[in-house]
Structures are given as C-alpha cells and as structure tokens.
Amino acid sequence: MIMTVPQQWITVLLIAAATMLTRFLPFVLFPARRQTPAYILYLGKALPAAVFGLLIVYCLKEVNVLEGSHGLPELISIAVVAALHLWKRQTLLSIAAGTVCYMLLVQFVF
C-alpha cells in the first residue's frame, strides 16, 4: 500500500461523491416542482432504447472478433436469448437459457 489509510478513505469518499454527482445531477437540474423543458422530456423518452443498445455494447466491449473464440460464444448466446424471447416472451427463461448456454460454451466448447 502506497497510500496511508486516511488517504485511501479520502479517495473512496471522492469516488462516491463523483458517482453521486452523476446520479443526482439530472434531478437537481430539473426538479419535480418546476416544468421540465420539452426537449429534456423528449430525451427521457427516446434515450432508454438507445441506452440499452449502448449497455449491450458496453458488456461486450472486451470481445475480440479477430482472436481466441472470435466472439462466437457471445454471438450464439445472444442469438439464443433473442430467439427464445421472441418465441416465448418469458423474460427469466430467456435470460437463464442464454446464460447457461454461454457458460457451457466457454467452459466446454471454446
């Protein structure tokens, strides 16, 4: 450990403060008691769909399609999730089946 214990906790508190800043800022800028600008309301409705796309890419950011397993376990498992979900529309089933499929692929196949 290079840092002293107080220095460590100052660092932790600053990381917590910065995290809370990113979470509270929109609610502080656009408080419930005031009319939220129409543009922000529009963003609030259009953003989630785009953000879930961003989150999927974020989860897969370390996948390398040029080396190793070429991202095949990820591709196959996502296809399983999507196909099963379009068929049954059972959220937990789709998630569980896709995860088990991925675990089997990375542990035994690739």
Binding site: T22, F24, P26, G44, P48
Partner: peptide, 24 residues
C-alpha cells in the same frame, strides 16, 4: 484525489442518461 474524482465522473457519466430517463 483529483484524478480519482475526474476518472469516476467519466466512467459513470452514463448515469446522466439514466437520470434524464427516470425524471418522470
């Protein structure tokens, strides 16, 4: 400390989108 604070803001900037989406 300042570097840790700024790095956290960058890594967690996506929360801003969550907040905007959850205002209503």
């Amino acid at each position: 400390p300042l570097q840790a604070f700024l790095l956290t803001l960058m890594v967690n900037a996506r929360h801003l989108f969550y907040g905007i989406s959850m205002l209503e």
